Computed example of a mutant assay.
Amino acid sequence: MEQDPFADIRPYHDNEVAPAIARLIADREFIQAILHYRFPRLSGPFGWLLSPLVRLWLKRRWARLKSVRAVQLQVAGFMDRMIASTTDKVTYSGLENLDPKQPYLFLSNHRDIAMDPALVNWCLHQQGFATVRIAIGDNLLRKACATELMKLNKSFIVKRGAKGPREMLKNLTQLSAYIKHSLDEQHSVWIAQREGRAKDGNDQTDPTILKMFYMQGKKQGLSFSEYLQSLNIVPVCISYEYDPCDTDKINELWQKKTQGNYQKTEFEDIDAIIKGIVGYKGKVHVAFANPVRALPDDPDAAAAEIDQQIWQRYRCYPINALAAGNAKPDATEQAIEQWQQRLQSVPPGAQELMTKLYATPVVKQQQ
Rank of each mutant, 00 (worst) to 15 (best):
P45A: 12
N261G: 04
S176G: 10
N232K: 12
G260W: 09
I21F: 14
L141T: 01
K151T: 09
N109I: 04
Q255A: 11
A272Y: 03
F156H: 07
I209W: 08
R64L: 12
F30E: 03
Y240G: 00
V132N: 10
Q193E: 15
I157F: 06
N320E: 06
A135D: 11
F288H: 04
D184W: 09
I310N: 10
T208C: 07
I319E: 01
L295T: 05
Q255L: 10
Q340I: 02
I250S: 02
V362I: 11
Q309G: 05
G196T: 02
Q340L: 07
P348S: 14
C123I: 08
A323F: 12
L49S: 00
L228M: 11
P45E: 13
E241D: 10
T355Q: 14
P52T: 00
A350C: 08
D243F: 01
S43A: 14
E252L: 05
S51H: 09
P117L: 04
D297W: 13
K163H: 06
Y240C: 05
K180H: 11
S345G: 06
Q308H: 15
P299W: 12
A321F: 14
P117H: 05
M168V: 00
L58P: 06
V17W: 05
P235V: 00
V362H: 09
G196N: 05
Q74F: 15
S43H: 15
F46N: 13
R194I: 01
D27I: 01
N232R: 04
P11M: 02
L35M: 11
D4P: 14
E305F: 13
A118H: 08
V132H: 10
Q263L: 07
W190M: 02
W254E: 11
I270S: 09
E16G: 07
L322V: 08
A26F: 02
A324G: 07
D14Q: 05
F156D: 00
Q102M: 01
V120L: 12
K163A: 01
K275T: 06
L172F: 07
K151G: 04
Y314S: 08
